[in-house]
Amino acid sequence: MKFTFFNTQKGKIILPVVLIFVWYFVYHYLQPFTDWLIFSALGMTKGEHLAETLWFFIFEFPKVLLLLTLIIFFVGIIRTFFTPERTKKALEGKRTFTGNIMASMLGIVTPFCSCSAIPLFFGFVEAGVPLGVTFSFLIAAPMINEVAVVLLYGMFGWKVALIYITTGLTIAIIAGWVIGKLKLEKWVEPWVYETKVGHNTLGDKKLHFSDRIKFGYEAIKEIVGKVWLYVALGIAVGAGAHGYVPAEFMASFMGKDVWYAVPLSVLIGIPLYSNAAGIIPIVSVLIEKGAALGTALAFMMSVIGLSLPEMIILRKVLKMPLIFTFIGVVGVGIMMVGFLFNFIF
């Protein structure tokens, strides 16, 4: 088989299949390899501080990167089917609760970056999507993103990842619905309604599947290229804590019995801005050292879902009272999730 085969349209579809086998092989042998490297080749003893720290980093960092690459590739392909233009069309004329549910779910799959929050907001307003429905989208999109889900799966397992997704969705649906009920359109900057929004015919192009695969690679390049450093830093801090911080150390600050830990975590999380890639590895170690799941979950959601830079961007189109209402409603939702999970587990 000639190498140029992979440049043909058929080859472009087969290449990922080949790569997935390579991926699986590397992923499967990562843990035995790390064990061998640390405990045999380097001859370190299990349970030792340095050995545990090194093991954590050498295993977790490539593992998370591998998972990120795989999932982002598929998400990149899936997202070629969900452009914001199509999402806008789907939400047009949708009122009340159904609109909130749809907007939150579309928020997960529609490509979104907070730098595009304004044009997206305009597009929604212009299409007549109600304010509350727009907010459901704006809450779900940054909070439930592929990087967060991969890291949650990688560091906590699928159960916590699923809890995060479902509770995040619930918050986005209900918070958007509440904001809609409050009728806050008067707190949207008036020039938003006066701006004439143009139309373009982009996005209606038919894409061949090999084009979609190309977008998958592009997504890997863009997202992994951006977050790998945060992943490395987060896991390095996590690895240090994993090896050196005594067990149950966090119990007295973020344990189940510390009731005020939930609201405090949310409050600290709002101005604290880190992407999911940096914060989740650290939180996973907090839990390992005795922090309660609900408190940790609330902290993560607050850091990831409510970010200061996004608020500053949204300030261009929303007046202050609406920004505060937005933070308040979502913050209360996150706190309720925190209390609920501390109560259940």
């Binding site: 452009t83 914001p84 233009e85 806008k88 490509p111 970056c113 730098c115 595009s116 304004i118 044009p119 997206l120 305009f122 597009g123 020039w191 701006t195 004439k196 929004v197 143009g198 139309h199 373009n200 015919t201 982009l202 996005g203 592009e218 863009e222 261009k316």
Partner: peptide
């Protein structure tokens, strides 16, 4: 200028316009 940008009807930045026609948006 956001109002000028919205005049082109894109929902994702960055956008690329050649001779007043939007040819690309949302990626580099």
């Amino acid at each position: 200028d956001i109002q000028k940008i919205m005049g082109y009807g894109i929902m994702r930045t960055p956008g690329l316009v050649i001779n007043e026609k939007v040819v690309l948006s949302g990626r580099v």
